[in-house]
């Protein structure tokens, strides 16, 4: 096992939304702080720093991860996806993002990044979710503005749309 010196900064390299990035972190630095303050990927937000609110949720090597409960040093060499990687291009939103906008599924938008990451990850593996499944999945996210139902609605709409576009593709 690699031992890191507590008072030194160590190089951390990772792949962020498909692109290599590198910076330095003390062993105690949280991944959320590393992404935000060292890399400048400020789309991932920090709401509680104890793993309950879900705002900082990202995907690390294919697994949903609370970046506030992960050390930067732990993800050296990992592949990371964050909210900045969801849109197909800078001026266009993805299907899930569009569904959020259509359904007024966000107000302040602070918790939204984590919710989008959880849903994006889940819908890729569960193309036909029920409302109960979506509610269960998102019970690990706190939102104070919306009362949640527009988020559930957006998720179900996006799932349906993704499924039908996939079907069209395979039919073609």
């Amino acid at each position: 096992m690699t031992r890191l010196k507590a008072d030194a900064r160590h190089s951390v390299r990772l792949t962020l939304n498909g692109k290599p990035v590198q910076s330095e972190a003390e062993p105690r630095m949280l991944l959320s702080d590393f992404l935000r303050h060292q890399i400048g990927a400020t789309g991932t937000h920090v709401g509680c720093e104890h793993g309950v609110c879900g705002a900082c949720t990202i995907v690390v090597d294919g697994m949903l991860t609370r970046s506030c409960l992960t050390l930067a040093a732990q993800v050296d060499g990992c592949e990371i996806q964050t909210v900045e990687g969801l849109a197909p291009s800078a001026d266009r939103l993805g299907v899930l993002q569009q569904a959020f906008r259509r359904n007024h599924a966000l107000q302040c938008g602070f918790c939204t990044a984590g919710i989008l990451m959880s849903l994006d990850h889940y819908l890729a593996r569960n193309p036909a979710p029920t409302e109960a499944e979506i509610r269960d999945l998102l019970s690990g996210h706190l939102c104070r503005c919306t009362g949640y139902t527009p988020i559930i609605q957006a998720a179900l709409e996006a799932a349906a749309q993704l499924a039908s576009s996939k079907k069209e593709t395979s039919d073609a």
């Binding site: 400020t42 964050t82 969801l86 849109a87 939103l93 966000l106 939204t112």
Partner: peptide, 21 residues
């Protein structure tokens, strides 16, 4: 009318500008 919000594109793609951003 319930038009789509002008605020949303940035917030949905991680480009919000909150104080710590």
């Amino acid at each position: 009318r319930s038009i789509e919000r002008v605020e949303d594109a940035a917030l949905l793609s991680g480009h919000g500008r909150f104080i710590d951003d």
